[in-house]
Nucleic acid binder design. Structure first.
Length: 420
RNA sequence: GUGGAAUUAGCUCAGUCGGUUAGAGUGCCAGGUUGUGGCCCUGGAGGUCGUGGGUUCGAUUCCCAUAUUCCACCCCA
């Protein structure tokens, strides 16, 4: 083995791709029914976009980005997430002048330099949605409704939605002050990471999993108790809308987000099936992002869902997919009819059928075996006699029943056979 | 970034207490006579035992390094 795929990347082979297509096609279908349009942004952007948009203090920006200088010496970065690039595109393309709200969805791959684990890759795919221009809690509710419909139609019955609010620039400082006050006294009894978090971002202490820190975290105040009037009202409205939509959720009093741009509503779909990477999908409101990137103040809300993790979850929950369309016909030929068989296959394929014929110049028996393994519905042997008579003995592989069909009726016959 | 485990055929795995040509199942290819598959039988191809060093008369086996994957942290989708 000479050259291998770079660490953290992987090939998706035909065997697996049908599941990807099923997920991606369903997602597109659901999004379009909710009135979202697809957007694709560049694979790399100026580094500054992520430094500003995602946040300098985040792990993503500090240690996980694939950053390089291009030949003109400009710093570029492979996109580590989608929202910053989409917000940039929203501003740059004057989408603010489109009728509000602007609803977008995407299906793109992202890059983060992380240590490999199950459900965690260096190039990974996300499906996501964004709504720009609405500050209403109903936009938050709709974003979650999109996901609920998607999961329902996918057949993913087991799902857990964690919901919280991290407040806004008005009320978060008060909460952080309260957090610091709470932890300060016992800080020396907590882990080294937490002591560092205390300085950099006390919110992160709430995420700590070290055993000895738990007692202090359990008694810590919650952002939910420190929401300002407007944030509190917003959160209540989101919950009300979800109740009305029959979407169950668990109010999580200690949710934290890794990206700086989140405000107010945050949510996450979690699972126990995808290793320690419990989060399948995360999202929330980011009212400040467009402004941070130089646009007009534009409220927005969105989510991103990891396709690889979703597929792990699908497998764990044994979700069934509709089987692939089977081969309609396998044409078996002899050396003197092989070219005619190719032409016949071409004709059938252009009628919309799925057809294969031998391109190995194999023996009759080997072709029969190939036809069998291809799980074709029908096969026919195309020899000199058939070339002469223009009649084929069509054999149904499931039971061996044979019918004589004229060449001109072949396509119709097979198309009708599909309907059974 | 920290700690731990694994790595033998395309795939799933045996095995060698250091010793001739490293095995199985499955998959792949062909044959079992001339125009009809699945089952069965026979044969074949396919491995520098992850890679590079070291110890040794001799290493796939022991030691070190490195790569990759997995697990726990960390982080996130």
């Amino acid at each position: 083995m000479n050259i291998t795929a770079p660490r953290g990347t992987k090939d998706i082979l035909p065997d697996e791709i049908s599941r990807w297509h099923a997920v991606e096609n369903l997602f597109a279908s659901v999004c379009e029914r909710y009135g979202y349009g697809e957007i694709r942004t560049p694979t790399f952007e100026k580094t500054e976009l992520f430094a500003r948009g995602v946040g300098d203090s985040t792990d993503i920006v500090r240690k996980e980005m694939y950053t390089f200088d291009d030949k003109a010496g400009r710093s570029m970065t492979l996109r580590p997430e989608g929202t910053a690039g989409i917000a940039r595109a929203y501003i740059e393309n004057g989408m603010a002048s489109l009728p509000s709200p602007v609803k977008l969805y995407y299906d793109m791959s992202f890059f983060r330099y992380e240590k490999m684990q199950k459900g965690r890759y260096r190039e990974f795919w996300q499906l996501g949605c964004e709504i720009f221009g609405s500050s209403s809690a109903y936009a938050d509710a709709e974003i979650i409704a999109v996901l609920d419909t998607f999961f329902t139609e996918l057949g993913l019955s087991e799902r857990q939605l964690e919901l919280g609010s991290i407040g806004c620039p008005e009320c978060r400082p008060d909460f952080i002050t309260a957090l610091r006050a709470h932890f300060e006294a016992d800080l020396d009894k907590m882990c080294a990471d937490c002591q560092e978090r205390f300085e950099i971002n006390p919110l992160r202490i709430l995420d700590c999993k070290v055993e000895t820190c738990q007692p202090f975290i359990a008694t810590a105040p919650s952002q939910l108790d420190y929401l300002c009037g407007a944030c509190d009202e917003h959160f209540a409205k989101v919950k009300l809308a979800l109740d009305e939509l029959d979407i169950t959720y668990n109010v999580n009093r200690s949710m934290v987000r890794g990206l700086d741009y989140y405000t107010r509503t945050v949510f996450e779909y979690v699972s126990t099936h995808v290793g320690t990477q419990g989060s399948i999908c995360g999202g929330g409101r980011y009212d400040g992002l467009v402004e941070i990137l130089g646009g007009k103040h534009t409220p927005a809300v969105g989510f991103a869902m990891g396709i690889e993790r979703l597929l792990l979850e699908i497998e764990a929950q044994e979700v069934e997919f509709p089987p692939l369309a089977p081969l309609d016909l396998f044409i078996i030929s002899f050396p003197d009819t092989a070219v005619s068989a190719l032409a016949l296959a071409q004709k059938m394929i252009r009628s919309g059928l799925i057809v294969q014929t031998d391109v190995m110049e194999r023996s009759l028996k080997a072709q029969m075996k190939q036809a069998d393994r291809s799980s074709a519905q029908y096969m026919l042997v195309f020899g000199a006699e058939e070339l002469e008579s223009k009649q084929f003995l069509l054999k149904r592989l499931s039971d061996g029943v044979e019918h004589t069909v004229a060449v001109d009726d072949l396509a119709d016959y097979l198309l009708k056979a599909r309907e059974k």
